[in-house]
Amino acid sequence: MKSTEDEKLLMIYFNEAQQKDIDQCLSSPARCDQLDQLEADMNAIETLQQKQHDLPEDYGQQLWHQIADKLVAEEVKPKSGVSAWLPSLKNMFLVPQYSLASFATIMALVLLAFYTGRNQNNEIIGSELQELLLAQNIQLHLTQSEVFLTQVSNDNGSYNSQVTAQRLLSSNRIFKQALANHKGHFTSQLLQDLEPILLEYANGSAPNPSEQTHGKQPQANWVSDSKSNDLMFQIKVMKQQLAQKNDII
């Protein structure tokens, strides 16, 4: 039997055939038998599928418990305008693991602005001061990245890793750019190695907690993976170097 004929038969069964195909089919006893067989098979498939995938009787109740909290969140979710971005701005400074780091960043920027303003007429901001500020900011960035990577490896799903990763990725690129004309080859290489990992989380292509609940393993486990351990070690060492000597190597 040609598959085109079978396809026409299927379309007759689904009531999607042209009238001439239907007439042609009904004029042939053999085709009618085939249509009967197809109908019987489709009914059998449907019956068997209905038996599959048993759910508990109280499944509705279970599902309600799972989504009830999310629905409350939907109800209070701000729609747009100031109320939409104000909480996220507030959250940026109040998320416990980043509050200190955010404060330190702001202080560093204020100090930089102060020095720049005070000394711009005298033009005495030397390369040494610039390097000092750069070293401190990179150290801060590495601390944030370390906290972030530790957190995603433990992944408790309590914060939005994608947003944090996007922020860290932007910082990483800025520091990389700042180091482009600088002697700090090792630091630059470390930022280079860090970037694809941050990029992965920033794009949301890294696994999220809900995927892990289905038994999928993270693509990069920042605790057990040896390559990741190396990177974490390098971050720690570089942080110490920057903290103790303020020297970008």
């Binding site: 995938h53 499944y59 309600w64 799972q66 999310k70 609940t213 289905h214």
Partner: peptide, 28 residues
């Protein structure tokens, strides 16, 4: 409504995916 239709929604999601955990997520 959730109590009434939860099973139907999950079963349809299972037909689409042939995966119980996917069906659970889709139902939610």
């Amino acid at each position: 409504i959730v109590l009434h239709y939860a099973q139907a929604v999950n079963r349809l999601a299972y037909r689409y995916t042939a995966d119980a955990s996917y069906a659970e997520d889709i139902a939610q």
